[in-house]
Structures are given as C-alpha cells and as structure tokens.
Design a binder for these strands. Structure first.
Ligand code: SF4
Ligand code: SF4
Lengths: 152, 152
DNA sequence: CCTATCGGGACCTTTTCGGTCCTGTTAGGC
DNA sequence: GCCTAACAGGACCGAAAAGGTCCCGATAGG
C-alpha cells in the first residue's frame, strides 16, 4: 500500500534515537538495537547500509560504534530511505533506472509519473531527521515539510 | 522502494485509456485489457475493485462493460490508488488504522509520520486522472500537482 | 431461452521482505 | 604481541505478500 519497507522504517527509528544523543558520540549496534527494540542483526545490517551511504560514521575495534556523520538538521528522511531501499519513486519508470518496467514501450501513462515521483521525493527531502524526534517538552517549534507544528 | 503495487499501476493505466475515450462510453474488460496490454483476468480484477470503489460504473449483460463514473478531471490518482491498495501512507502508523505496527507503543518516530503521509496523499490528490493522459499534440496545458507543464 | 458480460472468490506461483548467521577485518587494551 | 570487542560483507532461509489464473454464479440484452 505504498508502504516503504520496514527496514527503512526501522532505519529511521534507529537514526532518530541516535539523533537524540550528543552529536559525535558513538553507539554500538547492540546498544542502538536495544534502545530501538529492533533485532540486533537487523539493526546491524541497517547500520552497515547507512554507513556505506555515508550517513553514519563507523569506528571499528574496541570502543567502536556508529555516530551520525552530519548534523540531524542536515540529514533528510529522503536520504535515509534512499540509502536503505534505493531510489525513491512510486513507479519503476521515471526514477532514473530505464527499462525496469516492460510496459514502458507502449504505456499510456509512462513519463507522466516523473514529476509526481519528484514531488514526493522533494517532500521527503524537506523533512530533516531532527523533525522525527519526539517533540521537546518545551514546546519547541519543529519544522516538518513546510508544515509548522507546536508541541503541546 | 516505496513502490506502489503493479496492480495499482496497471489500474491507473487502464483508467487512463478509458479517459481517452468519449465519456460515458462503455468498454468491456477484454477490450481494455487488450488496449493496455494487461492480462485479461488481471484487468478484470482491477475493474471490479474500481467498481466497488465507485470510480467506474459497470453494466452487465450483453453489450455491457465499464465506464468512468465521473469526469477524468475530478478523479484523482490518490483515489485510484486507495481503491486498489487501500489507505495511502508510507508507514503503518498514522494512516487511520491503529495497532498495525507492533512497535507503536515505544517507537520514537511514531506520530511524526502522520503529517508526512498526509502531505504525500495531498500531492496525489492534486493529480487528476486527466493529467495522466499522453499530452495532446496541440500543446494543451496539463495540470500536474501544482506544476504546470506544456507539451512540446 | 441463450449467451456475452460482470461479480466474487478460491487458488497457486513467484518475488521480495525481514531476519539470522557465519566468516573476516580492524583496533584498542592488557 | 596477543586477545577480544566491535564493525564488514555476504550467504542463507522462512514467511508474507504480490501478481496472476480460474471457476462458478448472476444479469441482461437479443
Ligand atoms: S511504464 Fe507505465 S506500467 Fe511501467 S511503471 Fe511506468 S506507468 Fe507503470
Ligand atoms: S510506530 Fe514507528 S515503527 Fe511502527 S510504523 Fe510508525 S514509525 Fe514505523
């Protein structure tokens, strides 16, 4: 139902937890998994993907772990999703990859999707990771895709 | 990858074909399947769903068939997708249905998705079925989610 | 009455998601 | 210098959903 995969969902949850800590601090995969209640191997797999995409930095060896590569305000939900499940778009066509759909050559709607897909991607780019955190109890304003909300 | 199902995709293609005909005209499932190159049983299944949702009208018996229930300008892509695959939203949470995700009770991001899902739904509501047709060779203006485009 | 058409499911096959595990590799600490 | 806590990469597998097929019943023209 136009769902993103749970992997991407969990990835965002994990990064959200990470964003609630002091930036630059390291967290082990085990730690993050426990906090987000995602199974450890799954969390580990996600963190690997996110590292490869450059969204988190990893440090190996003893006292190693993962940390956000950038400020949570500059990491968009779109980037996270793209890192985990690839290009964003509702259809096979119009997302850069050609020839994915075998109806392309005679499809009446082909090409009409590109602007829609881009609009959705843009909407997700406008949501920073910092907006996914639970709202602060201070009533701090949170930007969210152009929509401003105030915590109760 | 945040894909809608192919069923929904095909549904839109079929409706697009239907919208290119004189409104009110009837088309058999077989006819529409041939024109859109979707397998007949699949097209039939889709048309049934669309009928149940009230987007197309059906007429049984000899010389029966399907026809659009409303003007193509007043049918949104969002409606079509919702008719075929249910509520629109990237996540289980924040789409009306409660308790779908078993992490809801302790999820850091829960609740933060509702506005995003709504934004996407709104974007799809802004795209009328008529905008999915191949552009006319006359350079006719086509509204598309707030973006105006001109055919070459 | 006969037949073309829709209506509503049951059903199966294929894909992909979600999750696990194993085998390196790195780097701090003793 | 070795030991061990962490990440890296990928193979693997079960379950779920998607995608497609088929059948039988209900309608309504002719
Ligand atoms: S070419 Fe047509 S059928 Fe294929 S993905 Fe694009 S819109 Fe869908
Ligand atoms: S509650 Fe959290 S994990 Fe569940 S669907 Fe919502 S955001 Fe995703």
């Amino acid at each position: 139902m136009i769902r993103m995969t749970k992997l991407a969902d969990y990835g965002i949850v994990i990064l959200t937890h990470m964003s609630m800590e002091r930036q630059g601090s390291l967290h082990t995969a085990h730690d993050l998994a426990a906090r987000s209640r995602v199974p450890v191997p799954t969390a580990s797999k996600l963190l690997k993907s996110l590292t490869r995409a450059g969204l988190v930095l990893s440090h190996r060896g003893r006292h190693g772990g993962y940390g956000l590569a950038r400020d949570p305000d500059t990491i968009s939900v779109a980037e996270i999703i793209a890192a985990i499940e690839g290009p964003i778009g509702l259809t096979e066509c119009g997302t850069g990859t050609e020839g994915a759909c075998d109806m392309e050559s005679f499809c009446a709607a082909k090409g009409r999707w590109a602007p829609i897909n881009q609009a959705i991607e843009r909407a997700l780019q406008d949501v920073p990771l910092s907006a996914m955190r639970p709202q602060t109890p201070t009533g701090q304003m949170v930007r969210l895709g152009g929509i401003a909300e105030v915590a109760p």
